[in-house]
Design a protein around this nucleic acid. Structure first.
Lengths: 238, 238
DNA sequence: TAGTGGTCTAGACCACTAT
DNA sequence: TAGTGGTCTAGACCACTAG
């Protein structure tokens, strides 16, 4: 593994273990050079990862302050998926696959993805039950050209884990969009909505591989009272 | 200005001007070294900025592909504020300040911010009218220790511009949270809600300076049908 | 094999913060 | 003034992609 990534993981672990508590300063870059036996640029790459992840804040002439990350308790930014969420949260939950079939791409999805009109896709619908209630409904469309097989056991687990570890797909980036949509019949049927629920949160994503091909389009519907999105953002001068 | 930032801006401009169209390759790092007369690490820093902003995707052995950013039409990630949004969108809009006063910090806000219990804050409430309707309501709490004066003209414009350009505050990062909340009487009074609107989207933010002090807490309420949040996210190995 | 990006080094100069 | 982080360089070696 990369040196700078190793150093990042080591510092991250030490921060989480309170070896470097909030408000304290990390060792200076010169000290870190000696501690890890690497060059300054390598140390700085590790510190950049910590900065972007919201662990530290650097100040010229002073040093790297450890931030109070406990306030950032639900980091859902980046490309995190439902399966990974479960692990950080301690929720009792269950996934039920209600649809898993090959189909031709619908005009709506074709437009969004720019896939070939004749493209074949996996159509996957999953209920996400948390604490006994179906509060999330996931709809996935996946190019069969790229994902040839999609066993139902994998769909019940994490499809991303399957893609990355078994199919060796390199997922690179995604465009996400959060909106509010009126409840449809399908949602009424498949989700445990309350009488007063007239709307759901819709999280729509286009997911791309490292070679810039879009291989997945996802719509994730969340019951209003169960939706929460937390993000750590750095100021970007415009 | 930094060389790598200059190079980033130049490449960004050329991408936006279609000089480097989507799907095409940027000049290789070695070529960029010659073009800009800088070292490789400097070129790579510029390319990293482009990568994080979603302009390009690099591939070892191949090069830097320009992405089709037009699909990412509403980049609201980072710390963008309402005023900056207006400029990218062409919306007719108006800001009306309904409250601007000094007050002691409320227990709720005190808890979230960890401000001193005796702290004094600016309490600012603003209606955001878009195309004739008040669809956003912004509530701001600002430490008077840090923001001593808050003229109403500034509040009607962009408080961030005022903070950064006139008070020389260095805004560094923020924690944002998106949730759904039931409509309150205040929202009914100050927003143009429809009879069926029982909920609003609440975007709550803690905003921090470069010295890690939290100086602002904001709640921004959006009418459901007018809310949209778009994000470009890179895959983060867990 | 030649060209690409990914990592790493050792050293330099600068700007900022403290004392 | 000494120590910090911010920028930049010139060069090295490696891994990947292509013809």
């Amino acid at each position: 593994m990369n040196k700078f990534h190793e150093i990042f993981l080591d510092l991250e672990q030490k921060i989480l273990a309170n070896e470097y508590p909030p408000q304290s300063l990390l060792p200076s870059e010169n000290q870190l050079i000696k501690i890890y036996g690497v060059s300054r640029e390598t140390v700085r790459k590790a510190l950049n990862l910590l900065t972007n992840a919201g662990y530290i804040q650097k100040k010229q002439g002073k040093g790297s302050f450890v931030l109070d990350f406990k306030r950032f308790d639900f980091p859902l930014s980046g490309l995190t998926s439902f399966k990974e969420l479960q692990q950080t949260q301690a929720i009792t939950n269950e996934t039920i696959v209600t649809t898993l079939k090959k189909a031709t791409v619908s005009p709506t999805v074709q437009k969004l993805t720019s896939w070939d009109k004749s493209a074949e896709v996996w159509e996957l619908v999953r209920q996400r039950r948390i604490d006994g209630e179906v509060v999330i409904l996931d709809k996935d469309f996946l190019l069969t050209d790229i994902v040839a097989e999609l066993p139902i056991e994998k769909a019940e687990d994490s499809i991303y884990e399957y893609f990355e570890n078994e199919l060796n797909l390199e997922i690179a980036y995604a465009k996400k969009e959060i909106e509010v949509e009126p409840v449809t019949k399908e949602m009424k049927d498949l989700m445990d909505l309350r009488p007063e629920d007239s709307h759901v949160i819709a999280v729509k994503s286009l997911v791309f591989l490292e070679d810039t091909r879009c291989f997945e389009y996802t719509e994730s519907y969340h019951r209003l009272d169960k939706f929460r999105f937390v993000e750590f953002a750095r100021r970007r001068k415009v």
